[in-house]
């Protein structure tokens, strides 16, 4: 309860490049934290929840704030790209409407202008909205570290409760999202108190569902995919009954905990409701194209 006016840390760095950042990370080790948007870390340092000796502010690193269409039609979201910037991007609106929809459901205007997509991923709370959307888009994360660069899938990146598989000496430089094929429909739905969210990605091939991906947040230790529910839909013809069944299957794949905002049972039930709603909306959108 002793939030201080200013955050507390000892050393502060403003590297200008990824290489410089990686070198600093290697040097400072576990006692360093990377600061980008600041919406999470600054409060954590105020409350004493984290007390890093070294804060490495990457806001001066050139080229990390881009949102662009990269090679092979992939969307590249730089580590400094804010939620607002992603939401505003015309490329995103056109090619990845799920991300546009998701960004506008996160926080409020002031926070979206500061918070970054990558920051939201690097501290993956169980209901991390961006992670839920990126899971169904089968995005990848690009990291740089002392040992070089690597690319991992979104689901591998989320290693466990509030942590990622990234090493202390690594940083995320970019998120890559594959282009959506024709006939895809997506949707993101969210409850605010408690925070439970769901994203769906469906592919409509001549009236049948050829691909189905569903992710849920706030109902397990990390954001999750629900493979059993997805399997029910693949190759099937979607109707109200099947959507309800998928919701029930998804509910069975959750393992929520109770907290201040709601009990586990409520969250479990909401996973069913939200999955059904996301599926219905996503399926309707496949038909609009």
């Amino acid at each position: 309860m002793s939030y201080t006016v200013n955050p507390v840390f000892e050393h502060y760095y403003q590297p200008k490049s990824v290489e410089e950042t990686v070198a600093l990370l290697a040097q400072c080790g576990k006692e360093a934290r990377v600061l980008a948007g600041g919406t999470v870390l600054i409060n954590q340092m105020r409350s004493g929840a984290v007390a890093p000796r070294h804060v490495i502010n990457i806001s001066r690193v050139a080229g990390l704030d881009e949102v662009r269409v990269a090679e092979e039609g992939e969307l590249a979201i730089g580590a400094l790209a804010t939620l607002a910037k992603v939401a505003r991007s015309s490329a995103v609106r056109k090619g990845w409407p799920l991300l546009h929809e998701t960004m506008l459901e996160i926080g409020v205007v002031q926070q979206r202008n500061l918070a970054t997509v990558v920051g939201n991923l690097c501290r993956p709370v169980p209901s991390a909205d961006t992670a839920v959307a990126l899971l169904v888009l089968e995005a990848s994360v690009l990291m740089s570290g002392a040992k070089g660069r690597r690319r991992v899938t979104m689901s591998d990146f989320l290693a466990g409760p509030r942590r990622t598989m990234m090493a202390d000496s690594e940083m995320v430089t970019e998120v890559r999202v594959p282009p959506a094929p024709a006939g895809a429909g997506t949707a993101f739905v969210k409850l605010h108190a408690p925070k439970v969210n769901a994203a769906a990605f469906l592919l409509n091939s001549g009236g049948g569902c050829s691909e189905a991906r569903i992710a849920l947040g706030g109902v397990a230790q990390t954001p999750i995919r629900v493979p059993k529910a997805e399997a029910l839909l693949r190759g099937a013809k979607l109707d109200a009954q099947l959507i309800d069944e998928a919701g029930i299957a998804a509910q069975g794949e959750t393992s929520p905990a109770s907290d201040l905002r709601a009990g586990a049972e409520y969250r479990r039930e909401m996973s069913r409701v939200l999955v059904a709603r996301a599926l219905e909306a996503a399926w309707n959108r496949t038909k609009r194209q």
Partner: peptide, 8 residues
Amino acid sequence: FTPERVLE
């Protein structure tokens, strides 16, 4: 009237 209480 929390959503949880209402639903219950």
